[in-house]
């Protein structure tokens, strides 16, 4: 199956938050009780009921005051730490190239929350009992697997969010970034085609990623690598070794004691 991807062109985005509301509508997510905090941005963060959110960034740079908008949500890493740490396979690599989430399988362990380098998954969780489900954008897996486009892409009024064949999106994004550079946006770039094995949500940026609140060089967390590749196998090995050691001991002692008895 050819991989799909989403391309968010921030230079076309108007911060209308249609994506944010369309996401809530399609997934029937509850609204949050918010207050104005001196910003257009609300709800204040991604949450169990907010999977997509537009962030607003007022940046004073060489070109005067800039107001950047970013349609933010899961970026669907190809090398996704969240998938690797998920003990129940609720988070999976979908053959179409995004990170799917089966809420029924999730047990709320929250490993994905700690593993994600972008702080995406959120847990609707009872602090005391730990009961809950992790949530995040799943690229409208129900729609996409039926050949439809994600709700946010469908609604985006200014046509800033595009969706389609991943390779085409990368090409389109690179073309846009190049065109922007030609227009004088020296810092313009396509964010994500090679990050974490390639993101499934890429961004055309007019300026440095940090100006949009994006990590400049997000990496697969070392702790997760160590945990997955080293400590977990090592631990399993340790338990096995212990069991083998004990079995060996059992055999040895039996034999030696048997000999002793014969001697007696």
């Amino acid at each position: 199956m050819a991989k799909v991807a989403m391309l968010v062109d921030t230079t076309l985005c108007t911060g209308c938050r249609g994506c944010q509301v369309a996401c809530k509508q399609w997934w029937d997510l509850s609204a949050e009780v918010t207050g104005n905090r001196g910003s257009y941005e609300n709800p204040p963060d991604l949450s169990h009921s907010t999977w997509t959110r537009v962030t607003f960034h007022e940046v004073e740079d060489g070109r005067g005051l800039q107001w950047y908008h970013l349609a933010w949500g899961c970026v669907h890493c190809t090398e996704a730490a969240c998938v690797d740490v998920c003990p129940t396979a609720a988070l999976k690599y979908h053959p179409l190239g995004f990170v799917s989430l089966e809420r029924d399988l999730c047990n709320g362990c929250g490993y994905c929350l700690t593993a994600c380098p972008f702080d995406i998954p959120q847990l609707e969780s009872n602090v005391l009992t730990g009961r809950g489900k992790a949530t995040k954008c799943n690229l409208c897996q129900d729609r996409v697997t039926e050949g439809l486009i994600p709700a946010c892409v469908k609604t985006c009024p200014p046509g800033a969010i595009r969706f389609g064949d991943r390779q085409q999106m990368v090409t389109l994004g690179r073309t846009r970034a190049a065109a922007l550079q030609e227009q004088g946006f020296a810092e313009a770039s396509l964010y994500g085609p090679e990050l974490l094995g390639g993101l499934g949500r890429m961004f055309v940026l007019a300026a440095r990623p940090a100006k949009y609140g994006l990590p400049e060089r997000p990496t697969y967390p070392l702790a997760v690598t160590l945990w997955q590749r080293l400590f977990q196998p090592l631990g399993q090995l340790g338990v096995l070794a212990t069991v083998f050691g004990l079995a060996a001991n059992w055999v040895v002692t039996r034999r030696l004691r048997g000999k002793k008895k014969e001697e007696v």
Partner: peptide, 24 residues
């Protein structure tokens, strides 16, 4: 171990939540 060893199917969904509650 249900959480530590991914092949424990008991860790999935509701039963996983129960086991996590027991853990607590």
């Amino acid at each position: 171990a249900f959480l530590y060893l991914p092949w424990f199917s008991f860790a999935i969904g509701e039963s996983g939540e129960t086991s996590r509650l027991l853990h607590r």
